[in-house]
Amino acid sequence: MIALLPGESRALFPRLADEMYDLRLSAARARLDRPLGAVSRLSVVDYFDSLDPLYVLAINDAERIVGALRLLPTTGVTMLNDAFAASAPQSLRIESPLIWEASGLSLEAIENCQAQEKIIDRAVGEIGVALNEIAQAAALTHVIGVFDSGAHRLLSFRGCAGETLTPPMSLDGEEICVALYEVGAAMDAQFSYLAGADACRLVNLANLESARFRGR
């Protein structure tokens, strides 16, 4: 299942937003192979989250967030254009109203994926299919994926890493890969076989938030 959380509405759904950041934190801890406490939530919520991106959340059957991704238009401030300004090759600056940037891909237990492979497959598939649908509704031509090496590897294993746009770049000691997806049937095909039938049902944010409020 999929939930779309507009960044400007985070204050209305605080528990959902907290859970999403917790997921990002646990993914960062696993990825960086560091003990609990070594990475704080502060370090995973970055400037780009303050720009009110659109969050795409993959929700499992127990209504927990198992995957998350954020979207920003490339006409505004983005990771590729602004975080890598110094290291990007040949002043790479991508700006188009028809191209958005997807970043901050976090998946549950990214390290322990063997046990949870099916959950991750489905989360990746659902996020990809939803991303393609959102992009089609917004009449976009392409989406640029800015992924850390762990997430990129995970997508590569599943055959949905897109087309490499630039050589890997470095940010705060982490290797970052930039992938290109063309919106349309080809992008849908990359992800839909992972998502499974009837997996991309849209979930109401208010229902998810109230379930968390009730302590489920």
Partner: peptide
């Protein structure tokens, strides 16, 4: 590159 990448660079040029 692919035809998709070609369309991408033409779109960024257009913009």
């Amino acid at each position: 590159a692919s035809s998709s990448a070609a369309r991408f660079w033409m779109e960024t040029a257009r913009a």
